[in-house]
């Protein structure tokens, strides 16, 4: 995703917040934080976020983590706006973020869920065990080559 240059210090600050379920990537990389606005007299910050999955249990936690992080730097008057449009997509994950996921043992999303790579041996000879996994965003796979079971980050 494109990180907006304005209010760079706030973008940097919020990119210190790890995703609660996949701590290797942060909320900015995940594309949850869409917009940050600081009022001219520095007394208010408005953060616009978008949910990843409508039923994601971490939805409320995202907001709490953002408030906590901003409060730690003295921003106490914070408004969080949740917007659904434009619709969050795994297409927003950069190649760099995807590489981090793979390194962490989570196979990153591929267009149309087509070529799915084993995070361990990097073989693409893999098969789905269940479309639904440990979190709403993941499916269960196993590798036909090295037999390792792994999570795949679903394409949304």
């Amino acid at each position: 995703m494109v990180v907006q240059k304005e209010f760079g210090h706030l973008w940097e600050l919020l990119s210190e917040i790890p995703d609660p379920e996949i701590p290797v990537i942060n909320l900015v990389e995940l594309g949850v934080i869409r917009h940050i606005e600081e009022k001219p007299d520095h007394d208010k910050v408005i953060v616009t976020i978008t949910p990843t999955y409508t039923g994601c249990p971490a939805k409320k936690l995202f907001q709490d983590l953002i408030l906590e992080k901003l409060a730690s730097k003295g921003y106490h008057n914070v408004e969080i706006i949740s917007q659904l449009f434009p619709v969050w997509s795994t297409d927003w994950l950069t190649d760099e973020t995807k590489a981090k996921l793979l390194k962490e043992g989570i196979s990153p999303p591929t267009i149309g869920d087509k070529i799915i790579q084993c995070p361990k041996c990097k073989s693409t000879d893999t098969k789905m065990v269940s479309a639904f996994g440990s979190t709403p965003c993941q499916s269960l796979y196993t590798c036909n080559n090295c037999k390792e079971p792994f999570n795949y980050f679903k394409c949304y």
């Binding site: 409508t54 039923g55 249990p57 939805k59 659904l84 065990v129 269940s130 639904f132 996994g133 709403p136």
Partner: peptide
């Protein structure tokens, strides 16, 4: 177990959709 997880996941999607 997989089916349990699948149905619970779909349930979660529907609760989230309803909430919105």
């Amino acid at each position: 177990l997989e089916e349990d997880i699948a149905l619970s996941n779909i349930s979660l999607d529907l609760f989230g959709r309803a909430e919105e």
